[in-house]
Design a protein around this nucleic acid. Structure first.
Lengths: 234, 234
DNA sequence: GGGTTTTGTTAACCACGTGTGAAACGTTTC
DNA sequence: GAAACGTTTCACACGTGGTTAACAAAACCC
């Protein structure tokens, strides 16, 4: 039997270290939080999971790391996020990027219990590997998207934006929300950026499916076929 | 679309109740924690999940309930356990009985975030905040409105005005009030603006439902079906 | 390091929502 | 029944907000 190695970013100290000891798994500490470091440290049989302390380094970087880990060819196990209380709101609409979270100040028992819980449950839970909405299929592992069977050649940002919209169908997002959730920064200047990316996406969706991304005037954009049938499915 | 109902055992008070409100799901409270009560309360389309306060009643009973819920023919959604800190150890080797847990003292934000997280990961679009009044349904996330099941195609201002009126049914607003509350500025000039928007709304509500917005002569407008019997229920 | 792709910005253009005034209509009052 | 008042309806002009294309900057790849 091999030893479980769990990725730990960016550090493994205090209660976090204790929790690892109690649980009996070995941490691999990637201090930089960069993907190449993560890959370099990886044991031959892969990581059993990941603990990312989003309270310990820039939140956006943490989110990006999650995204990258999810998209890797070799999937890492369950991702556990450590956050401060004030960061809870930032988790909204990002539910797919992590499998569990712990709110600081971090308690050893809780950390250990969650670690054990997720590691044990790993395998039973399939992380929704794909999105299907109105002819659009997005494979979250291969980074590929098809519309009505035709492969769309999307760039990174296009993919992320489309994914975000498609995972929350029918819901309207303001440009500011999109900027903060997809781009991950606080709106310096260009809200028009969103418009342009939407335009590019619509172009790649093709004439026929361009309407999948709808403009809600004075509000923002939403994904989804029109609910024009009178079934009132709000 | 149906409303998500989440089983709540054995009570739904304080932070737990708040978390349900924030998340926008409806609790079904089974005070006894017995399976027959759970079944009796079950909506036709089943539970979207379960919140079981193991700190609130005998721990073994809570575990038994979890087991029963898991083994039912009709599976309940994700099970979230509420525990006290000293109970953490008791969770070991029972990882398969629940999907998430929260450690007391219970924090509204954390509870809500976990609830949302699990419901979403279970593929459950958690229900949006909405307004329902006399056949009118307004979904505040999708910016859609339906009247008697038919989708109304509202513009921004129309939506905002209708929303304001519908959130305060039966209450009469002067044009000035509407201008300041909905438009947000201090009435330079056109009170006729309100009239016109009301007209457009009535048109989109359709012949049959136009009366939902009522004119109160020399005063203003109000939303609501007629209380034409003289029961004076104001 | 040069070329290519991706990403963000700026500005012109266009469409649609919105507000306005005036006329038609209805209701109340003398 | 006519005058006074309030509401509804209509047509039109203006401006906000969205789309589009072209450009600049940055990242990426040999």
């Amino acid at each position: 039997m091999t030893i479980d190695v769990v990725l730990c970013v960016p550090s493994c100290e205090g209660p976090i270290k204790k929790a690892f000891e109690v649980t009996g798994v070995t941490p691999a500490v990637a201090a930089s939080g960069r993907l190449n470091e993560v890959t370099a440290l990886e044991p031959t049989d892969g990581y059993a999971g990941a603990v990312i302390n989003a309270a310990g380094f820039p939140f956006n970087d943490a989110m990006n790391l999650c995204r990258q880990l999810r998209h890797r060819d070799r999937p890492v196990g369950p991702i556990i996020l450590l956050v401060d209380h004030y960061q809870l709101d930032d988790l909204t609409f990002r539910e797919d990027l992590f499998d569990d979270f712990v709110v600081g100040p971090f308690d050893v028992s809780e950390l250990a219990t969650r670690l054990r819980h997720r590691l044990r449950r790993a395998g039973n839970e399939s992380v929704a590997p794909r999105i299907e909405q109105g002819g659009l299929v997005m494979n979250l592992e291969t980074y590929q998207a098809t519309i009505a069977g035709r492969v769309m050649d999307l760039t990174y940002m296009e993919y992320e934006l489309l994914r975000f919209l498609a995972t929350n169908p029918q819901r309207v997002f303001t440009r500011e929300t999109l900027l903060s959730r997809v781009w991950g920064y606080e709106y310096y200047g260009g809200a028009r950026t969103v418009d342009v990316h939407v335009r590019r996406l619509r172009a790649k969706l093709g004439e026929e499916h361009a309407h999948l991304i709808q403009t809600v005037r004075s509000v923002g954009y939403k994904f989804g076929a029109d609910a024009e049938r009178g079934d009132g499915d709000l």
